[in-house]
Amino acid sequence: MLSASFRIMKKIITKLSLLIIFTLGISVFAQEKKQFSSISNVLKRIIPSDDVDFWVLNYNQYGKDQEIKISGTKKDYTPQFSGFDMFPDEDSFYYIVYSKGGKINYVTDLTGLKTFIGKLDNAEEAAISATIDGYMIDEEFKDVAGNYFDDKNNYYLEMGKLTSKECPYQKTHYVLAVNKASGKITDVEDNGPYIELYNKKCTNNPRLLKIEKKEEPKDEPKKKPAKSTKRK
C-alpha cells in the first residue's frame, strides 16, 4: 500500500516538475525576444566584411543628406542622388560611402549592401539580408513585424512583407530562420496578413459586397382607389 502511494506521489511530482520547466522555458523565451529599435539603428549595427579605412552611412530625405554614422577618419566624397530603401514606397533612401585601399566606393543598392555586410555578425545584419528577399522591418507594427531572437545556430526574425499592392493592399508577417553560418533563410513560417486595406475602387471590398447582396425592398402593391358611393 505504501509503495502504491509512493508511486502516485512520484507521478504527481514528475508532472509538476515538467510543468515548472515548461513555464520557465516560456518565460526565458519571452525574455530573449528583442525588438529592432529602428531601421536607422539596424543599419548602424553593420560590421563590414572587409577591412575598410572608413565608412559613412547617409540618409537622404527630400534631397537633404544626413550622416547618421561615421566610422573611421572621413574623407571627401561625392553625395549620391539614389540609394537603397529598407521599406517599400518611402520618399527617402540610404547609401554608404567607404574607402578601401585609398579608393572611395559607394553602396547604393541592396545587392551591394549584402556584399558590404558579407558574413552575418548579428541579427541586424540578418534582417538587412532578408530585405533583399522582400521582407521588411515594419516600424509602424514592430510588435508583429520587427522582433528577433536567436539560438546557437539561427537567427529567428519576425518580419513583414508587402504581399499585395492591389485590392486589398496587404502586408503579411513571417518568422524567418536564418542560419548563422551560411546566412541563408532555412525556414519560413507564414503567420498571415496583419494589414488589409480596401478602397472604394476595390471590387472585392467585403463592405461593398455586403451592400450588393442586400435584397432590394420590394414595391408594395398599389392600393386601388376606393369607389365613392353616391346617395340618390
Rank of each mutant, 00 (worst) to 15 (best):
L24C: 13
L208D: 06
L16R: 08
K44Y: 05
N199C: 14
Y94N: 03
S228H: 15
K213Q: 11
K161E: 10
E90C: 12
S5M: 12
K230R: 14
V56E: 00
L2P: 02
K161D: 01
K201I: 07
S3W: 08
K114C: 10
Y155P: 00
N105E: 11
L162C: 02
N191L: 10
D190L: 12
H173F: 03
K200S: 13
Q31K: 12
A4Y: 11
I46D: 01
K232S: 11
N205G: 09
P206S: 02
I21P: 02
P88S: 08
S5I: 15
W55R: 10
V188K: 08
L209H: 05
K184W: 04
K74E: 10
D91G: 14
T203G: 03
G112H: 12
G118F: 07
E139V: 11
N58H: 10
I137R: 01
L197S: 06
I211S: 06
S5D: 14
G183T: 02
F141V: 04
K201W: 10
N179W: 05
F29Q: 00
V42C: 05
P206H: 03
K180H: 07
K152L: 15
L197P: 06
S71N: 11
D121A: 14
K74Y: 07
E32I: 14
L120P: 07
D65L: 07
S3R: 06
T23C: 15
G101N: 11
I68Q: 01
F29W: 09
F54D: 09
K10S: 08
S27W: 08
L57E: 05
E32Q: 14
I70E: 05
P206I: 14
F116A: 02
D65P: 12
G112R: 14
K213G: 14
W55I: 06
Q80C: 02
E67M: 12
K44F: 03
K10T: 10
E216V: 14
A123T: 03
Y194G: 05
T163S: 12
K214S: 10
S40W: 09
L24P: 03
P206K: 07
K34Q: 13
L2V: 15
A145D: 03
S38R: 05
N58T: 04
K227L: 13
K218F: 11
R7G: 01
P217M: 09
V178A: 01
S37V: 15
L209E: 07
L24W: 06
T203R: 10
F149P: 00
Y198C: 05
